[in-house]
Nucleic acid binder design. Sequence first.
RNA 1: UGGGGUGUGGCCAAGCGGUUAAGGCACCGGAUUUUGAUUCCGGCAUUCGAAGGUUCGAAUCCUUCCACCCCAGCCA
Length: 563
Amino acid sequence: MSKPTPNHFIRSIAKNDLANGKHDYIYTRFPPEPNGYLHLGHAKSICLNFGLAEDLGGKCNLRFDDTNPEKESMEFVESIRDTVEWLGFEWDQLCFASDYYERLYQFALELIDKGLAYVDELTPEEMREYRGTLTEPGKNSPHRDRPAAENRDLFERMRAGEFKEGEYTLRAKIDMASPNIVMRDPILYRVRYAHHYRAGDAWCIYPMYDFTHCISDALEGITHSLCTLEFQDNRELYDWILANITLEENLVGERGKLMPKQIEFGRSNLEYTLASKRKLIQLVKDGHVNGWDDPRLTTLVGLRRRGYTPQSIRDFCAEIGVTKKDATIEMTVLENAIRHDLEATAKRVFGVLNPLKLVITNYPEGESETFTVKNHPKDESMGTREIPFGREIYIDQDDFMLDPPAKFFRLGPGREVRLRYGYAVTCNDVITDDDGKVIELHCTYDPLTAKGQTPDGRKIKGIIHWVSAAHAVDAEVRVYDRLFKEPNPGAADDFVALINPESLQVFPDAKLEPSIKDADPEARFQFERVGYFCFDAVDNAADKLVMNRTVSLRDTWAKQSGK
RNA sequence: UGGGGUGUGGCCAAGCGGUUAAGGCACCGGAUUUUGAUUCCGGCAUUCGAAGGUUCGAAUCCUUCCACCCCAGCCA
């Protein structure tokens, strides 16, 4: 099922580092901030980091980059851990940047003592003015040349809680005229009187990302620190910090004094979806979707609930590749990945979403029979099952047309179709209600056509699925479509206006074959001729089945008929 | 207009001076089929952002130009 490991530029770099002896093994890390749920974009990073370690014989840590107490929580940590495990990856160590707070603090002191960091008291507004612009250099803060001893004293007092939020910051002393704005004396620490979900109230100063990340990598002995393109400018600072602190050999692991190397890759965006955390929050908060795990969302919890398998997501990530440019991926690539997996693994079953009763008038009343059918058309190992058949059955309304076009192979007045695995039936009467809506079909069956036979050799092109009315199991089936009408909703001013009003379609009266009742709640199915389905992990119950359509089958008829 | 990046078919993406420019998705044929599914076979870039140049030979090297993305949070 899984494809051969595709090569990409980061894999080449890592392999080369191994080949020339720079590293004995590679060590990566997946470093999310626990401030939200993971989405498909994270899956790319997870597959890259964990996959590279798996592939080249190395290790990968799961590290929570939790340096901003205001946004983070244990709920997110747990969800992220759970999702990484669900995808099938194992981390070497489970790490938290917050576990490094004390060491980080000591490194900050070292920079201060070396005259490479200073405490500043510029207000945020002043800070912005002093920073300069993209084309103009910044200027030095009046506090930049404070003596080291005074900086140390001030920084210790910052930690001790003597100052208000925003009053003081610790900044690296680099170059206010650097063409790279990241290097214009970046802030290393800020004062924040916020409760940290892990560190509690032990700290009132918190290290910034740029200071924390590189040191965390070094402490863990990471060899290749992979991140997205927008951090390219930050790499210079990453290297500067590591070059200016004293890392004892034992802290950088078995690779001696080699520093971790940051390598950036491009993000992948899926068409018709949103990845922006802010916008996702709005969708959830305003009730446009039903929670973070809404099956229309490309959060990993959403995809999971929708029925996507870990394998399909890993295959998808392998398929889109890893390059240095941001990519826009068509939805069909994701759909192909899940269809490919489920085609091979999903048990076949009959399900009618939109039932239309069909009465076989020449079939004896009160009688029934069962057909033994294959659970998979090609995989014999998946076995067989029994499906009951009787005088009254349900077929899908889509499989009948009052006035069908010539190429429509299904049922219509006077037409004959085969009931899959059963008999051929011919439609003689169409019963309509007062509004002219078709509510029932009267047909006759040909007893000689059992089991796919046609003794007279006539060709029956149309084959439809069905469920015995007397044995049918009721279910609610939810069918999903793209959440947005436009390929790039994130680019619009008002993305909410672009929501597809038909993104969720509920079939409250679906009729399923009885074997579904005994199925594993985790199982995935193909409703023959319709699509792939799974039980809804939240709303499904023994007394009320609720199923989700993961993805439809390819439908060349729908394409032809221009639906 | 400062700095950092990227440009290969509709969407991804291999390619690293000599290949008929991989592969996947999509699309278009056609075969098989008790799922209009699957599978199978065939088609789909004389051309690699553009223009020059180097070379026997360039998507790959050089020059210039063009387009797009990122950076001025006490977010990550």
